[in-house]
């Protein structure tokens, strides 16, 4: 069976979907990726779909689920390279892909992941700092 390779780049994982993304391949990716996030301690996943010529509701659901599962594992997902025709089609189809970050290309996606990871670690630091100071973080402002 075809499996989609997952490349590790520092604290990020890179997935390029080039084969026909049929159902078993999609589900296998979801499994492989969540395992790899844990084993590699990844903080971000970049999924490049520029070679995909269509996304139907099943694939949309798998991509959305990958993003949700990754978030539960403390890892952000950015989807890059969606063809304009696919964006129009899945909107009409009714797939919202809510909660999934997107960028136009791999470069923009990497920069976005970097920002998301940094923002998260800053938030963590602020929360810790306020815990030490003995007050909840939401009282810090003003």
């Amino acid at each position: 069976m075809d499996r989609i390779p997952i490349l590790k780049l520092g604290d990020k994982l890179l997935v390029t979907i080039q084969v026909d993304f049929h159902d078993r391949v999609a589900l296998a990716l979801q499994e492989d990726l969540t395992e790899k996030i844990l084993s590699a301690g990844a903080k971000g996943v970049l999924i490049d779909i520029s070679a995909l010529e269509m996304v139907d509701s099943f694939m949309g659901r798998v991509l959305g689920n990958i993003a949700k599962a990754s978030r539960l594992l403390d890892c952000e997902t950015v989807l890059v390279g969606m063809q304009p025709a696919i964006a129009i089609t899945i909107t009409e189809l009714g797939i919202a892909l809510q909660g999934i970050h997107t960028a136009l290309n791999a470069e923009g996606g990497m920069a976005l992941l970097e920002r998301l990871i940094k923002a998260k670690s800053n938030r963590g630091r602020t929360a810790n700092a306020s815990k030490i100071a003995g007050r909840p973080p939401n009282l810090q402002r003003g």
Binding site: M54, V55, A85, I88, T89, L93
Partner: peptide, 27 residues
């Protein structure tokens, strides 16, 4: 379906819509 829509010169957006609809119904 992809081969036929390319043959019929549908616009790229319509090609994508048709292939997607075919995929939904085949499933």
């Amino acid at each position: 379906v992809k081969r036929v829509v390319a043959l019929l010169n549908f616009s790229l957006v319509n090609q994508t819509k048709i292939i997607t609809a075919a995929s939904e119904l085949a499933r």
